[in-house]
Design a protein around this nucleic acid. Structure first.
Lengths: 163, 163
DNA sequence: GAGCTGACTTACGAATACATAAGTCAGCCC
DNA sequence: GGGCTGACTTATGTATTCGTAAGTCAGCTC
């Protein structure tokens, strides 16, 4: 275990999963649309209205999220209505829930509304509130300060700047 | 337990912890600066260089993150150098780690580089990789589809649109 | 087949986020 | 006390993101 943080200038984060993720959902509206999708919203107009965003912005984000595979357009038909398309979470999109839970949790803790949170996510089996927790592969809870950064297989070594 | 999702139009998300959080760290560069802060970067120039962002953008984000209380400017002094200021994570900032872990994890799973992740976060005690997991207050692991949305104390009721 | 409705698209302007390049400025070293 | 260096700021231009308002378009219903 070398201390990667001490030699931070010998490697680059050009290959960064966080940056790649943000290229898909890096805008405020994209994340809020994902929030609404988890609330069960499926129709175009409802996304625009409930997120509080204009239709062009909603259309652009929905198209991006669909192209990226977090949402899929599925045809549906209400009785007496014509066939329409609904936006529905894919497995890839549902797997994004921990990010939203972590964001909401941080906001509830550190930027809370005085009234308390508007909604809470609960566990179906027991009704207890769902939280995003850090845990290691051995099953231990990971508390503040108990982590270190290690080299991964995709680490990109670079020449340290002469400066 | 009423079905909030079915009556989605009777309440508003004007009071939303996710949206409030995004007003602080809702930009790509703010999140990448937080990533670098967790890597131990503390100096202005290093933030700009390592995040790959121009100095004005770095200065603006660092100022916002400091004003929001995720970072703090602490004076430091290297031998033979004058006093300078370093940007250091506060408790509020360190508590943001689950968001970054969740983002990285999603990216590693769904937008992975073929080389694998550049870095991994490990648990100090055992060296096992740290993951962001959903867990309920009773300690159960929460799997895909095992959640529901419930009313919180700050829920804002609204008149459903006539439309 | 005319009207209606949901689902977008187009057009245009404002605000924000970013890059590059250059300038400022404090204070330790010599 | 002049130069150097790290830490910014200022200036300017561009790209992206958003708003509002209006237009298009498909395909049921009647």
């Amino acid at each position: 275990m070398s201390d990667l943080l001490a030699e931070r200038d010998t490697w680059s984060m050009a290959n960064c999963s966080i940056a790649r993720t943000l290229e898909i959902v890096g805008t405020r509206t994209a994340l809020l649309i994902m929030r609404e999708a988890f609330f069960g919203t499926r129709r175009f107009d409802d996304f625009a209205k409930r997120v509080g965003v204009g239709e062009p912005a909603a259309a652009a984000r929905l198209k991006e999220l669909t192209a990226a595979g977090l949402l899929e357009r599925v045809p549906y038909r209400e009785p007496g209505q014509r066939t329409r398309h609904a936006y529905q979470l894919t497995r890839k999109g549902r797997d994004f829930l921990p990010v939203l839970v972590a964001l909401r949790q941080w906001g509830d803790t550190w930027a809370a509304d005085e009234q308390g949170p508007a909604v809470v996510v609960r566990h179906k089996d027991c009704g207890a509130e769902v939280r995003a927790a850090l845990r290691c592969g051995e099953g231990h809870d990971v508390a503040d300060g108990e982590t270190y950064v290690d080299e991964g297989p995709g680490l990109l070594r670079v020449e340290p700047d002469a400066s």
